[in-house]
Write a protein that binds this DNA or RNA. Structure first.
Lengths: 251, 251
DNA sequence: TTCGATTTGTTCGTATGTATT
DNA sequence: TAATACATACGAACAAATCGA
């Protein structure tokens, strides 16, 4: 495709920004899937009719945003949620002594239904759109620590059922990515201390007058569109929520 | 100073990493103070005997880490804690409706004493080192929302007393920076839901059986050394803690 | 094992554009 | 207007890592 970038772009972005937008579009469209390599810098330079330096600058930003991963001598790859490095990026519960451990997730309930007002708002859905609701308990050291309720638009996950959900390998975000091509690029969480509702307390094996951490998370994919809403209840008697601003390992 | 970087560095970092280290050292040593401009890229290139491109790459990383701020046509400046953009970077309490507001801080208590075990550990202090302890209440919309206890090594803030603390203009981090040359580069926070102690409950005007958000923060300066430990109690009845991972405005 | 092709990483240089003073 | 400083873009050369022949 002979698409010279220089001319014709309605918004007068710098070239490297246009390249970045094109790459992001390709990624969102699934032209290159998670784990796969994108074309080499030289080839992209030919394709977009810009110099390698310009390509590099575009890729630099995508790498900084954890969308791409570079490997010297191999290529540049679409980031996946299966790499150890990134597993803790979206999981912030740690032991009070600072110990990090990946949780064991057990499915409690898998249902579908019309979206609530909150779900409509957070996910940008039409009134009454169908959502899947998935409840889980997350165990650390064998004990329940987090109670999750995940809400996702049913339309985005056409054939997802309880069986497929159970049969996944790896994390839930890994499932979204591997099976539906939806990558979590950013999350926003709002935390509060609350008395847990009966159901959460029961799952967490605490009383309803034990303070618990309520976390409302919205996950975003390409173009910053929200696609998952998640409410978590955390028993913080032996664990804490770690917010590290910011260990940007680029140092 | 004729210090060619190319030779003589014991660790074989790339040139731009060496430049970055030198710049960081200069910043830590106060060679360029917050708000001031560092030398132009051209001049730095001469000084370190490297090309402008290499200087730019070093500065790029420092900008990404919010240590420096570039302004086209003007220069590159040492970041300050007084800019509106950065004020919310370390303050995460927002209204339940998402509204952001800067708190009004009122000093409750200003004392000094020997460090507790926890303070020793978090701040890397010797046994019994002197610390300053400062209690504040943070008000939003005129009502108390956060109760703070700040602990800092007294040795770092030689002449800081209650009067000087009260007389500051701007934020507490701005005071550290303007008066003592200590810049907060990174913070790490650990959150839990707890019943507040009597003192916190009283200040926040809630009962001790109201769940509150307990935040333990450690602030780090250059070379990642901790210098402030802060325990906050937040009334999350009308407010929440916002963790945004991550709006990197570089997009 | 060695070698060569490929790919990213680093560094240099140059030219030009844009914002500020 | 002119000088200065950062921003963008191009090109070239070599280094370092990877991989397959």
């Amino acid at each position: 495709m002979a698409d010279t970038l220089a001319a014709g772009s309605l918004t007068f972005n710098p070239l490297y920004k246009e390249v970045k937008i094109r790459l992001t579009r390709g990624l969102a469209a699934g032209e290159w899937k998670p784990g796969e390599a994108i074309p080499s810098e030289a080839r992209l330079g030919e394709r977009f009719n810009v110099s390698i330096g310009t390509i590099r600058k575009a890729i630099d930003e995508l790498v900084a945003e954890r969308i791409l991963v570079r490997q010297q001598g191999r290529g540049t790859f679409v980031a996946t949620h299966t790499e150890d490095r990134t597993l803790f990026y979206f999981f912030h519960i740690v032991g009070k002594d600072g110990s990090r451990e990946l949780p064991v997730i057990e499915l409690l309930s898998f249902k579908s239904g019309p979206a609530t007002t909150v779900e409509e708002k957070r996910l940008g859905l039409a009134r009454g759109a169908a959502v899947l609701r998935i409840q889980n308990v997350l165990k650390l050291g064998g004990k329940p620590v987090v109670f999750d309720e995940i809400s996702v638009p049913a339309a985005l996950f056409p054939d997802l059922d309880e069986e497929a959900f159970r049969a996944r390998e790896g994390t839930i975000y890994g499932l979204y990515q591997a099976r539906y091509g939806i990558s979590v690029l950013r999350i926003s969480e709002r935390l509060a201390a609350r008395h847990p509702p009966a159901r959460a307390a029961s799952v967490l094996d605490i009383t309803t007058d034990t303070p618990a951490l309520a976390i409302k998370r919205v996950a975003y994919t390409y173009d910053d569109s929200p696609f998952e809403y998640r409410v978590s209840w955390v028993n913080t008697e032996r664990h804490e929520y770690l917010s590290d601003l910011w260990k940007n390992d680029g140092a």
